[in-house]
Amino acid sequence: MQEWTFLTNHAHVLLCVVRDPQARLRDVAEQVGITERAAQRIVADLVEAGYLEREREGRRNRYRMHAELPLRHPMDRDTAIGELLAVLIGTRIDPDQVA
C-alpha cells in the first residue's frame, strides 16, 4: 500500500519557510523529504503565485509570506493561506513574516 499525506509538498515547503524565513533550501528539502531541486521549483511556484516574496540578504534569501491570499482550490477560496498555516503551526503567524 502506497503511503500518502493530506498536505502537498508545496504546503510542507511553505510551512518550513514560515517557521524559518531564512531557511536554506537544502534544509527545507531535507525536512520535507524531497530533493533540493524540487524545493527550488516549489519555492519558485510559490513566488510566482504571489504567496512568497524572496529578498536577498547577504548570501542568503529571506522569505515573506502574503498571508491574506486565498487558497487556490475553488472549494477553499474563502480561506486565506495564513489562516490554514496558523492552524497547522498552532500559533498566530508572525506579522514580520507577512508582507
Rank of each mutant, 00 (worst) to 15 (best):
E68D: 15
V28L: 00
P95S: 02
R59I: 13
T8M: 04
G82T: 08
P70D: 08
R56Y: 07
L14Q: 07
R60I: 12
D78G: 11
T35A: 00
Q40G: 09
Y63S: 10
A80D: 01
L7K: 09
P21E: 07
D27R: 08
A44V: 09
R60P: 02
T8E: 10
I89C: 03
D96Q: 11
V87F: 06
L84N: 04
I93T: 02
Q22W: 03
G82C: 08
D78I: 00
D94M: 00
E30C: 06
E68C: 09
A99H: 12
V28D: 00
A67Q: 01
Q97L: 14
G58F: 11
D45N: 15
H12R: 13
R37H: 04
D20Y: 09
V32N: 03
E68V: 10
A39K: 04
T8W: 08
Q22P: 00
G58E: 11
A99S: 14
E55L: 12
N61V: 06
R41E: 12
D27F: 02
H10I: 04
R24L: 13
A99Y: 11
R92K: 15
I93D: 00
D20Q: 13
E68N: 10
D78R: 13
V28P: 03
G50F: 12
R72Y: 03
A23F: 07
A29S: 00
R56A: 14
R26A: 04
A23I: 13
C16K: 11
I34R: 01
T5F: 05
L15T: 01
H73G: 01
P21I: 07
R60Q: 14
F6S: 12
R19V: 02
L88R: 07
V28S: 00
L46M: 07
A29H: 02
I89K: 02
E55N: 13
D94L: 04
V47R: 09
L52T: 07
E55T: 15
R72P: 05
A86I: 08
R62Q: 12
T79L: 14
A44E: 15
Y51N: 07
E57W: 10
